[in-house]
Design a protein around this nucleic acid. Structure first.
Lengths: 139, 139
DNA sequence: TCTTGACTTGGAGTGTGCTCCAAGTTGTAT
DNA sequence: ATACAACTTGGAGCACACTCCAAGTCAAGA
């Protein structure tokens, strides 16, 4: 079951793959968000395909508003092992709900913007309408 | 056409209405994002209904990822007057597109999370499956 | 062997957006 | 008159998430 070495990557390749900067990857390791990476004899970091996929998932959580602290917490639960599985499921469900709320708010704002664009376009067609406005963001 | 005084609010009421803190409202004025507010004889700020609505729209733009600098730019365009209307429409359309991209990314992440939740639940039902995982965020 | 470039570390600095504070003034209730 | 809260100003400080730097090590090609 052992013997076939997994493909490993340098920090540069990891950065390219994940979209994070090399500095950011080192920073995440420093603050304990990423585990201490394996090093080559030279001391250079190496990453497995697994770890790269993990880092991509991480960037998705970050991009959807999860803080570094929350992600650290999630990782700590992971380290406990299976005993924390239900907790991890809860966190993911909770985060998914937060994302849904965010989507709802974004869509509401799109409607507000559409409404405002319509009003602006009205004025472009018929400039008299303009007297209604008192504030750059009003109505 | 004059004579009916508009309802005005204190900074505290403005904060309650908009969800911004009093400090934040003063800060926005300080950096030139909000115009210098009218003051009472005492020096206390007053806000019209119009301005309050404008501030709410502002919070929507901020909550959807527009930076304070971009909002300042928008306000400067507003101050130019009608000559900037087309530009302002462009900015709003552009921002609406950014929101749409954000919504798309959020929905993709929801799918990734669902996928992961399913895998976790699988392990809860059948613990042997667990050996597949090497990283807290992998797959 | 020499050069070039990728990598290492610890720590300092940065940008954004607030948030808090001190010291003073004004408004309202008793 | 006397509290006490609400407000004012300018400026300092803070949290988050990087981002950059200096000084040094390591690896591969001409």
């Amino acid at each position: 079951m052992t013997g076939i070495p997994e493909t490993v990557s340098s920090i540069k390749q990891a950065a390219e793959f994940t979209g994070l900067s090399e500095d950011t990857i080192r920073y995440y390791e420093k603050i304990g968000l990423l585990p201490y990476a394996d090093r080559k004899a030279s001391g250079h970091r190496t990453y497995s395909k697994h770890q790269l996929n993990g880092m991509v998932f991480l960037t998705r959580l970050k991009a959807t508003g999860m803080t570094l602290e929350e992600m650290k917490h999630f990782r700590k639960l992971y380290e406990i092992g299976e005993a924390s599985l239900t907790q991890r499921v809860s966190i993911l469900i909770e985060h998914k709900n937060r994302i849904q709320n965010e989507i709802d708010r974004l869509q509401e704002t799109q409607k507000m913007i559409d409404f405002k664009i319509d009003k602006y376009k009205e004025v472009l067609v018929n400039p008299d309408t303009n007297t209604k406005w008192k504030s750059p963001f009003a109505d």
